[in-house]
């Protein structure tokens, strides 16, 4: 018993397959799209199409970009000796928002996850290894994968793989968020903050 015509059903099904959109939201969006002006609806479809067609992965850092190499990789003011490894393109914009990091990036596009049928070649880890071999000026790799079991495994793997090459591998610190009360921190966060504490006086190494 179809409640809507097949074309509307199809639109709803397509929309609800997007992340963060459930059945109800998909219905609302679908009817909003149907009630839009032709002009606006065309603008939407062409925006989707042109984003799909004109963005590609930067051959260097694998981030989505309109031009290859991407603006970050081709920026002469960037520090070419440091590469920050992140899981998704969104993480790049998060770091860029802070305006503090001046080096380059490498986007993995996911983590190695056999349970979700993600093989290691679905990520850009092999590209990273090749990039480091091609660019001897890179001396430090900062691993900024998420603080999950898989993210930590990725970090450890990279450190083991890159160890013999002499490239420094570091991992983002984990612990207390800024401006937070210690009272509300959970045990694990607190433990990790304690392990990764920073020396203020005395021998710094």
């Amino acid at each position: 018993m179809a409640r809507y015509s097949p074309s509307i059903q199809n639109l709803i099904a397509q929309l609800s397959s997007l992340p963060g959109i459930g059945g109800k939201s998909a219905q609302r969006l679908a009817f909003h799209i149907l009630s839009m002006d032709d002009k606006d609806a065309e603008a939407l479809t062409s925006a989707i199409m042109s984003a799909r067609q004109s963005t590609k992965r930067c051959t260097c850092c694998q981030n989505f970009t309109d031009s290859d190499p991407c603006p970050i990789c081709s920026d002469p003011l960037r520090d070419k000796t440091t590469v920050l490894v992140v899981e998704s393109p969104r993480d790049v914009s998060t770091f860029e928002r802070a305006h503090e990091y001046k080096g380059l990036y490498h986007v993995l596009h996911g983590v190695f996850n056999p349970m979700k049928s993600m093989s290691i070649s679905d990520t850009t880890i092999p590209d990273l290894i090749k990039r480091l071999a091609d660019h001897p000026e890179i001396t430090e790799v900062i691993v900024a994968t998420n603080q999950t079991a898989e993210g930590n495994a990725t970090a450890l793997y990279l450190s083991r793989m890159l160890g013999p090459s002499g490239i420094k591998v570091s991992r983002l610190a984990s612990g207390l968020p800024m401006g937070s009360d210690i009272e509300y921190a959970d045990d694990l966060t607190l433990l990790s903050a304690l392990k990764g504490r920073v020396m203020l006086t005395g021998d710094k190494e």
Binding site: F112, N113, P114, M115, A149, E150, N152, A153, D187, L188, L191
Partner: peptide, 21 residues
């Protein structure tokens, strides 16, 4: 030790991944 529980659950997550592989 709550951190031990976390170690175990991380271990079993990674082991499940390896077994899937």
């Amino acid at each position: 030790s709550p951190s031990y529980f976390n170690l175990l659950s991380n271990y079993s997550k990674l082991l499940a991944q390896k077994n899937a592989l």
